[in-house]
Simulated scan of single mutants.
Amino acid sequence: MKKEIVIDGPYITLGQMLKEESIISSGGQAKWFLKETAVEVNNEPEDRRGKKLYDGDTVSVPDVGLFFIRSKQDS
């Protein structure tokens, strides 16, 4: 699945994105989810829930899909 995520501000954190997309049910689950799941940001492994995602970034979540970050300001 490929999905575009439109953000209002300059960035969204990886933990916020996972919660907003209902991949995890609470922000507290992000730390454990990222330790157990091989999430990639821009084709690089990432396990920090506070990782800032900016316009143009891609996030790959195994068994879920590929997400494209887009800024509403650029739309």
Rank of each mutant, 00 (worst) to 15 (best):
E4L: 02
E44I: 08
E20P: 00
K72Q: 11
G27V: 11
P62A: 09
R49Q: 12
E4F: 00
E21Q: 15
I24F: 14
R48H: 03
L66N: 12
G15H: 06
I23E: 06
V59A: 08
L14C: 03
V39P: 07
I5H: 14
G15M: 10
P45C: 05
N43W: 08
T58Q: 14
G27D: 11
S25L: 11
E46I: 01
Y54C: 01
S75Q: 15
Q73M: 02
A38M: 04
Y54E: 02
V6H: 13
I7Q: 12
E4H: 00
Q73K: 13
S26G: 03
E44Q: 13
R48N: 09
I24C: 09
V39Y: 08
D8A: 05
Y11W: 15
D63W: 06
P62W: 10
G15S: 15
S22C: 05
P45T: 04
D8V: 03
E36F: 11
I7W: 01
K31P: 00
N42H: 05
L53S: 13
I7Y: 05
Q29F: 07
L66D: 09
Y54M: 09
G28P: 10
E20W: 07
T37R: 15
L14H: 13
L18A: 08
K35V: 00
E46R: 10
A38E: 07
V6P: 00
